[in-house]
């Protein structure tokens, strides 16, 4: 860890968080709400009891992974916004293995997790190849892949994976393929440890290996990377593959790591937008794997604590969303600014 100057960005982030909160407070004052009361409800709601903390972390779990997808892309010089679709496919992969393949305990859970990651990674391959071979811009191709994934996943969920008699969702994960719940009736499962471990591994990979160094160099300065003999195509493929694994894992955690449904809804309602939210999380987390974990907790807190703003401080739910959005935008501005500057300075 000594290799990374963590504290400075962290302090900067805390400063921007307070700016974001002030911005949200101004919005509330404009609409005649008491911001102190509302924020108190938000914080107590998100962190006030063990139960709430676990709930907040449950919301954070998939987000730290989809944030990783975007972050690894940016580190490699790519705007990979395909986390959404890769995550759908990850959910499908996990659903298939967890719900329909009876396997011995232990192995089953591992296989379902691996299937999710693999499906996510495979879905990331076409845009990567298109970029490497034909120079197709990844923003375009990943958006298209997101839509294809949406319809593909819906189709598979309804026609092949549906639970008999309850076809609005897929067959639930068999008990052998479920991550254990951390406390009784909590939404948080041991899946969060897998997610954290994955983020840590990616961090160590990016900053501690030759391949990670080359990936970051290609993102930081493509000309210098060429000078250093880094092969562009390899970096693109690698960055997409890691991103796909992360997004696929995110999708899997929502199936085999999140009660009560343990399955995928035919509307994809229990995974939808998690991939896009990851972009915001990544920006707040400065496109850093560890920063992304912290930012995901913040997002989780807003997602879970937001309902208490509504419930206890009476803030209109639309306004809660607006305030959360405002906080997130404020937080993302520095990183967005950096990205934009880097683009134009080339």
């Amino acid at each position: 860890m000594k290799r990374l100057p963590l504290p400075r960005p962290l302090i900067e982030s805390l400063v921007t968080i307070s700016i974001g909160l002030v911005a949200g407070a101004l919005l509330m004052l404009l609409f005649d709400y008491n911001p102190v009361q509302a924020y108190r409800a938000l914080f107590v709601g998100a962190f006030g009891s063990l139960e709430d903390i676990l709930e907040t972390l449950a919301f954070a779990t998939p987000l730290m992974l989809t944030a990783l997808t975007f972050a690894v892309g940016v580190r490699g010089g790519l705007f990979n916004i395909g986390a959404e679709g890769q995550m759908y496919l990850g959910a499908i992969g996990a659903t298939f293995v967890a719900g329909l393949l009876p396997l011995p305990p232990g192995l089953h859970l591992a296989a379902a997790t691996a299937a999710g990651m693999l499906f996510g990674a495979l879905w990331a391959v076409p845009p990567a190849l298109l970029k490497a071979w034909r120079g197709v811009h990844e923003v375009i191709s990943t958006i298209m892949c997101n839509w294809i994934a949406f319809y593909l996943a819906t189709y598979l969920a309804i026609n092949f994976l549906a639970e008999p008699g309850r076809a609005e969702r897929t067959a639930p994960a068999l008990v052998t393929a479920r991550y254990p719940v951390l406390t009784e009736d909590a939404s948080l499962t041991a899946a969060i440890f897998v997610a954290l471990a994955f983020c840590l591994v990616v961090y160590l990979y990016l900053w501690g290996t030759r391949a990670g160094y080359e990936l970051r160099l290609a993102g930081e300065n493509p000309d210098a990377a060429r000078y250093a003999g880094v092969k562009g195509g390899k970096v693109i493929l690698l960055s997409f593959a890691i991103g796909g694994l992360a997004a696929g894992l995110a999708g899997a955690t929502q199936i085999i790591g999140r009660p009560p449904a343990w399955s995928l809804y035919a509307t994809l309602g229990n995974v939808i937008t998690l991939g896009f939210d990851g972009i915001g999380v990544a920006l707040v987390g400065r496109n850093h794997p560890i920063g992304g974990v912290l930012a995901a907790v913040l997002f989780g807190a807003l997602a879970h604590g937001g309902r208490f703003m509504e419930y206890h401080a009476g803030v209109l739910s639309e306004l809660v969303r607006a305030i959360n959005g405002l906080i997130v935008i404020t937080l993302a501005v520095p990183e967005l600014w950096m990205l934009a500057r880097r683009r134009f300075s080339r």
């Binding site: 030759r210 160094y213 160099l217 930081e220 300065n221 250093a228 003999g229």
Partner: peptide
């Protein structure tokens, strides 16, 4: 443009183009 990655630190820049040399690598890359 070609010689340095300005947002990398000195140590990272010092091995730019030498990152594949055995001296600077441990096991598993």
């Amino acid at each position: 443009r070609f010689g340095l990655a300005l947002n990398f630190d000195l140590a990272e820049n010092s091995i730019l183009s030498r990152q594949g040399e055995r001296t600077f690598l441990g096991a598993l890359g």
